[in-house]
Amino acid sequence: MNEIGARLKYFRKQKGLSLRTLGKLAHVSHSFIADIESGRSKPSLDTIQSLVKALDISFSELVEDTAFLTKTYGTFKIRNENVVCEELQIYEYLKEINQREDLQLLFKQIRRLSPESIRRVIRYIKMVEDEESKSKNI
């Protein structure tokens, strides 16, 4: 399965669409969509634009250079290890953490804390957010 095919399948399933339904919405044959998802065919730019419109996603979401595994799994490299997650939102958080040293440091510091201590840290972070929000409104 190629990257665009895997992402297409991911978004189609996330939206709860069958191949036939997506085909009707995008004005593309369902068998061609199956071929794209399996990597047997490559879509044209026009076909990609029709698919993203039908799926109500951005062009970059479908063609972005981020490896996706089969089904609903996202993957990217962190220190030469594959990280796999099922939720796109969690995947995006992990990607951001991987790119920001301050977030990496935060997670290193709290990872050995007890659940109650982590809840205290979260309450503190919310308090800081509230203070920043109030100072911006003044």
Rank of each mutant, 00 (worst) to 15 (best):
E92M: 04
L19G: 00
S38M: 07
K9F: 08
F59A: 00
K126T: 07
E129S: 11
G5D: 07
V63T: 15
Q99T: 15
C85S: 08
R40C: 01
E37R: 04
L22I: 08
L17V: 01
G39C: 00
T21L: 08
D35N: 13
T66P: 03
Y124L: 09
N82G: 02
L88A: 06
Y124C: 05
M127T: 14
I125T: 10
G16K: 03
I110A: 00
V52R: 05
G39L: 07
Y73K: 14
I33E: 05
T75E: 15
L8S: 00
T21A: 02
Y124F: 10
F59H: 11
E131C: 14
L22P: 02
V128G: 02
I48L: 09
L94H: 02
S29W: 02
A54T: 06
T21N: 05
Y93W: 12
L25W: 03
N80K: 14
A26K: 02
N2K: 12
G16S: 11
L45S: 02
Q14I: 05
L51Q: 02
R100Y: 06
A54M: 07
K15C: 00
V128I: 15
H30K: 04
S117T: 10
D102G: 05
K77E: 14
E131K: 15
G16M: 06
V52I: 15
D56E: 14
V63H: 08
A26L: 05
L8H: 04
H30N: 06
Q14Y: 14
Q99Y: 06
V121F: 13
R119N: 14
S133P: 01
I57F: 04
T75M: 11
E129H: 12
I97N: 02
I122G: 03
A67P: 15
R111S: 03
R12P: 04
G23D: 03
S60K: 11
I122P: 01
R112H: 14
G16L: 00
L106P: 01
R7E: 03
K42F: 10
I138T: 06
E86P: 02
I57P: 08
K108T: 09
P115W: 09
K134L: 05
L94I: 11
L25C: 02
K108R: 10
D102I: 13
I33H: 04
Q14T: 04
Q104V: 10
I78E: 06
I122M: 12
L17Q: 00
N2L: 04
Y91C: 00
I78P: 02
H27N: 09
R100T: 14
R20A: 07
E87F: 06
E86D: 10
R7Y: 09
D35V: 06
R112S: 03
V28C: 01
Y10P: 03
K24D: 03
L105P: 02
L105G: 01
E96R: 13
R112W: 08
K126M: 11
F76E: 07
K24E: 13
R79D: 15
L51E: 01
N80S: 12
S135H: 12
F11H: 07
F68L: 09
I36S: 01
S31E: 14
S114Q: 12
Q14R: 13
G74V: 07
K136A: 10
H30W: 07
K108D: 11
P115L: 11
A6D: 04
S44Q: 08
R79Q: 07
A67W: 12
A34T: 04
V83G: 01
Q109M: 09
S114V: 10
T47M: 05
G23I: 08
E87S: 12
D130E: 14
R12I: 05
I97Y: 09
